[in-house]
Amino acid sequence: MVKHEVTLVRIYLRESEHILGKIVDYLHDKAKVRGMTVLRAVEGFSENGKLRTSFLVDLSLDLPLIIEFYEEPNKAEVIITELLNEFHLPHIVSSSMWVCSL
C-alpha cells in the first residue's frame, strides 16, 4: 500500500450564483484536477442566517452546493489562488490528508 499526501478542497456556493458550470469547466479543462464531485444540499444556511431548503413543490431553488476535489498540496494551493482570483469565492476550505492506494 502506498500513501500519498493530498489537499482536500471544498468550495461552498449557492445555485443562484450561477457559476457552478464555470468552476467545473475550470477544474476539468484548465486545472486538470484528478477528480471532482458536486454535492447539492437539501437544506442549509450561511453566515447571514437565511435558511434555504428544498421541497417537492419548489419551482425556483437556491440551495447550497459543494464542489469537492483533492490534489497534490502544491498544485491545490495554486488552484485555490486562481479560483479566488477568477471567481471571488467567499468560502473555500482545504485540509491536508493521506490517500492510500495499492
Score class of each variant (00 low, 15 high):
Leu63Glu: 04
His4Pro: 01
Arg40Val: 11
Leu83Asp: 03
Leu39Gly: 12
Gly35Ile: 12
Thr7Pro: 01
Val42Thr: 10
Glu86His: 03
Leu83Arg: 08
Lys3Val: 09
Leu83Gly: 13
Lys3Gln: 12
Tyr12Glu: 12
Ser46Gln: 07
Arg14Pro: 00
Leu27Asn: 04
His18Gln: 11
Ala31Arg: 02
Ser101Arg: 13
Glu86Gln: 09
Glu5Asp: 14
Val57Ile: 10
Thr53Gly: 00
Thr53Leu: 02
Glu72Ser: 08
Pro73Met: 06
His4Asp: 09
Pro73Trp: 07
Tyr12Trp: 11
Pro73Arg: 04
Pro64Val: 03
Gly21Asp: 09
Asn48Glu: 12
Asn85Ser: 06
Ala41Asn: 03
Leu59Arg: 14
Trp98Met: 10
Leu61Cys: 08
Pro90Val: 05
Ser54Leu: 10
Gly21Phe: 02
Thr53Phe: 04
Thr7Val: 10
Lys50Pro: 00
Leu13Arg: 03
Glu72Val: 06
Ser46Asp: 09
Val6Cys: 07
Ser94Lys: 15
Lys30Met: 11
Glu5Trp: 11
Leu27Asp: 02
His28Tyr: 15
Arg40Thr: 13
Leu27Met: 13
Val99Tyr: 10
Val38Met: 11
Asn74Cys: 07
Glu77Thr: 05
Val9Trp: 05
Ile67His: 03
Ile79Ala: 01
His91Asp: 09
Leu102Gln: 11
Ser60Ala: 01
Ile19Glu: 00
Glu77Arg: 07
Arg34Met: 06
Leu65Gly: 07
Lys32Trp: 04
Gly44Ser: 03
Tyr26Gly: 01
His88Val: 01
Asp29Ile: 14
Ala31Pro: 02
Thr7Tyr: 06
Arg40Cys: 05
Val93Asp: 08
Met97Val: 10
Glu5Ile: 15
Leu51Pro: 01
Ser46His: 06
Arg14Gly: 05
Lys32Met: 15
His28Asp: 09
Glu5Arg: 15
Glu43Trp: 02
Glu17Lys: 14
Ser96Trp: 13
Asn48Gly: 06
Lys30Asp: 13
Ser60Glu: 03
Pro64Thr: 03
Ala41Thr: 08
Asp29Met: 14
Val33Thr: 07
Arg34Leu: 05
Ile92His: 03
Met97Lys: 13
Ile79Asn: 00
Phe69Gly: 04
Asp62Asn: 14
Thr81Ser: 08
Val93Lys: 15
Leu13Gly: 03
Val57Lys: 11
Asp62Cys: 05
Phe69Arg: 08
Glu72Tyr: 09
Met97His: 14
Arg10Val: 07
Lys32Ser: 14
Asp62Tyr: 07
Thr37Gln: 14
Leu83Thr: 10
Phe45Ser: 05
Leu27Lys: 10
Lys50Gln: 06
Leu39Val: 15
Ile79Gln: 00
Leu61Asp: 05
Arg14Trp: 14
Phe45Arg: 10
Ser94Cys: 10
Asp29Gln: 15
Gly44Arg: 04
Leu59Asn: 10
Glu68Ile: 15
Ala41Glu: 09
Leu20Glu: 06
Arg52Tyr: 10
Ser95Val: 13
Ile92Gly: 02
Leu13Glu: 03
Val2Thr: 14
Phe45Glu: 05
Trp98Val: 11
Ser96Leu: 15
Val99Gln: 11
Val24His: 07
Lys50Asp: 00
Ser46Lys: 04
Thr53Asp: 02
Ala76Asn: 02
Thr53Lys: 08
Val93Leu: 15
Asp25Trp: 02
Lys50Trp: 01
Ser101Asp: 08
Leu8Glu: 09
Val99Lys: 13
Tyr70His: 09
Lys75Phe: 00
Ser54His: 07
Leu56Ser: 13
Leu39Ala: 15
